[in-house]
Write a protein that binds this DNA or RNA. Structure first.
Length: 169
DNA sequence: GCGGTGATAGAT
DNA sequence: TCTATCACCGCC
């Protein structure tokens, strides 16, 4: 929860063949643990969700709808923060980064990056300028209507100054 | 609005 | 083995 706010303004960087691709995080969602029915960890500890129960600061990547990768920062105890939108930075000009599937494609991520630490290359979060609380807008999470009351919890965060926030509903 | 696509989890 | 489901996106 606090991490979902703290990640706003930080840079997500992927180094591919010596070239960095980077973007500033402007939209996140918190998935708070096994009790959260929208969180994959609500299935318990499985081969897929195990990484969310591991060390904080590692990556949780998964494929959704057979086409799109999503990237999360692991919090631990079954919790993680989904990165939903970036402002294109180094090596990302002209690419769309507004949306969890678009940004993983723009960064060139792949499933093999799952469970890797996010404090070193090839994929890492770099210090940026934190978004002040007054600029953070809070809303319900996108695309989790199946999760009952959990779908309406205020777990989505975005920088209201950014034009690169996703348009999902 | 609708369908593609494949990993996952649970059922059979 | 089989089947339903899915933290999305591009095009109609």
């Amino acid at each position: 929860m606090s991490l979902a706010r703290a990640l706003l303004g930080m840079d997500l960087v992927h180094v591919v063949r010596g070239r960095a691709r980077a973007g500033r995080i402007v939209e996140t969602e918190a998935y708070i643990g096994p009790e959260d029915l929208a969180c994959h960890a609500s299935k318990g500890r499985t081969a897929r969700t195990e990484v969310m129960f591991g060390p904080a600061g590692h990556a949780y990547l998964f494929l959704v709808y057979g086409l799109h990768l999503c990237v999360n920062v692991v919090v631990g105890e079954g919790a993680a923060v989904l990165i939903r939108a970036l402002e294109p930075g180094e090596g990302m000009q002209g690419l769309r980064t507004d949306g969890p599937g678009r940004l993983t494609r723009a960064l060139g991520l792949c499933l093999e990056l799952n469970a890797r630490p996010l404090d070193r290359a090839p994929l890492f979060v770099a210090r940026g300028v934190p978004v002040p609380r007054r600029h953070i807008e809070v809303s319900r999470r996108i695309g989790v209507d199946y999760a009952g009351e959990w779908a309406s919890r205020p777990f989505r965060f975005h920088d209201r100054r950014s034009p690169f926030v996703s348009q999902g509903r």
